[in-house]
Design a protein around this nucleic acid. Structure first.
Lengths: 334, 334
DNA sequence: CAATTTCTTGCATACGTATTCAAAACGTGC
DNA sequence: GCACGTTTTGAATACGTATGCAAGAAATTG
């Protein structure tokens, strides 16, 4: 029943060459004559031979595995990143080993990654602890913090310009004539939230305004809904809200429209951040800031490939431009 | 700079035991005395040792890798499945190796999977070719077709009861008093579309109706929008549409509301299939059929684990119950 | 054609672990 | 204290490939 696994030895025997010749025929930069390679490939095809990546990793230390750590996939930003990242890596002969983590067992998970001898790590979940970052650096495994950063860490990072993005939104809302502008934060300890909030406040300050009210949604759907209710419990209501990401903004819009019976944008403006696909859907038409996911992926790949090839890790930080995407969820400047 | 990798030999030396003892200390069912294991674990902790999964896979043939093949992640159904699947596998010491494919290079991709010595394959993209399925079966690698099936294939499958789901929707629309019920198909060669359509037609037939009109959306957002426009080009318009999945239904609702200025459900009813998170959002409030993703994952895991453990593959087909989720996008029965 | 240089090739070894086998240590009952 | 069964241990080997090395083949040069 079970077909015995076919090895390079089998191919060698059929092609009447040595096992080394087979091995060399399957690596690009090896010294083999054209016709032995042809013989080998022919025999390999006949037997259905494929090099065993595991065995190859064993000897060469190259597993061609990139670990990707993610906390959740319900915010569409991450699935899209994973899809693009995976495609880009596949094109380069690498593959994505996926790890899900709820903050807490992160150390354990990173240990598991090391166990798989991954050649690189992309962290798209809460930033890893500093001890782990150091450990990875020591082992020589490049680490890229995706959409987040830790200034003191030896890990590289790729982000969009969240500060500028926040500023753009503040300017846009001010120009729209809003006077009571509120903010709903994501996770307060995340760099994205810090930067978006800081940029937003700076933008407000440049126009002589300050934030009218503030609540925390922790980047969760329910958290954002609760935050929206809280903001509207006060006597004087805000006339605009910047929600720290699109995923939360949808929840906020639902509460405003369905529970509080407010019209968006006539009664209140809402803006988000990320420009996930749903933001463009008719049900929301969300004005937001686009994170250039394709550029961010490119930067990530570049950092990983470079450090893997040069076998030396060094901290790199890529910050890519953010772009304001104007739709219908916020009043337009007159 | 680069910390040398610590091996079982290093631990053995420190703990003053043999390498075998170290190996045994890290496997559950091995014969080691309690105190040698303690000694070993202590030394391992001190050195920061972790068994090398690659080397382990080399000798034991167990890579603890499950390949997951997906075509795209913009339909939220799949990210959620991947998240749940990955979590469930992690709990069992397995990990997800992700492969993205646009139909076409599938053969190549499956070859890559074999190269990684994966212990199981979950296909959540277009069904694999019959030759590949046979090849996998021969190699003894269990294959689960997720949310799809191929009757003639030796591969196992996990689906929800798409026929019954389609029937439930037909009954619901008929009871709602609709007389001109249309259908927008997904990919016509997919088993999900075939079953949903067949069940839907059967449900209509049971009430003496037939489908009023039909168009094809190919499970894509733009395809669905085009299909909706096509259905409404005719003089007499449908009064209800069953769209073969939620992802397309959102596009259809956008076209109906924003381009055709129709109210949902007052002017026309729309129902979908899957019950992805967005279906419950206020912007759509989509009446749909829920696919029990948790149960489907459970079944997948069960099939995989059983066949991996028994080292024998056999075709299993799990069909899980579908549930009608009534929201506001379709007129209710009087 | 001889003397070099450049390419190819096969042999042997290494990668880090799991596992078989035989020997050693340990318990147990008399 | 002895014979026996049981558990624990270490030495040796195997997994499938890549690669350093030396030898052989081919190509180039004078």
């Amino acid at each position: 029943m079970k077909k015995a696994k076919v090895t390079s030895g089998d191919v060698a025997r059929l092609a009447d060459v040595s096992q080394s010749a087979v091995s060399r025929s399957f690596s690009t930069d090896a010294s083999v004559s054209a016709d032995t390679r042809a013989k080998v490939l022919k025999a390999a095809r006949k037997l259905g031979y494929r090099p065993n990546v595991i065995a190859r990793a064993m000897i060469s230390g190259r597993s061609r595995l990139i670990a990707v750590l993610v906390a959740y996939l319900d915010n569409q930003f991450y699935p899209i990143v994973i899809e693009q990242l995976s495609r880009a890596l596949q094109d380069r002969g690498f593959h994505v080993l996926l790890f899900m983590t709820d903050t807490g067992n992160q150390d354990e998970v990173v240990q598991q990654m090391m166990g798989y001898q991954v050649e690189g790590i992309v962290m798209a979940s809460a930033a890893l602890s500093s001890t782990l970052a150091r450990e990875c650096a020591q082992t020589g495994i490049p680490v890229v913090l995706f959409n987040r950063y830790v200034p003191s860490s030896p890990a590289s990072s790729v982000t969009s310009d969240n500060i500028e993005g926040g500023r753009l939104l503040a300017q846009f809302l001010v120009k729209g004539g809003h006077k009571r502008i509120a903010f709903i934060a994501g996770s307060e300890d995340s760099s994205t939230n810090r930067d978006r909030e800081a940029g937003f406040y700076r933008g407000l300050a440049e126009s002589g305004q300050t934030v009218w009210a503030r609540a925390v949604g922790n980047y969760s759907f329910e958290g954002a809904a609760a935050a929206a209710r809280q903001l509207f419990a006060d006597k004087i209501k805000p006339d605009a809200i910047f929600v720290a990401n699109d995923h939360m903004a949808f929840a906020v819009m639902d509460v405003l429209r369905n529970e509080l019976k407010l019209r968006v944008p006539q009664d209140i403006s809402v803006v988000g951040y990320d420009d996930v696909p749903e933001a463009g859907w008719g049900g929301y038409n969300l004005t937001t800031v686009r994170q250039p996911s394709a550029l961010m992926i490119d930067a990530t790949i570049k950092i990983l490939m470079e450090q893997i090839q040069r076998e030396t890790v060094s901290r790199r930080a890529a910050v890519l431009p953010a772009e304001l995407i104007i739709r219908q969820s916020a009043r337009l400047p007159k």
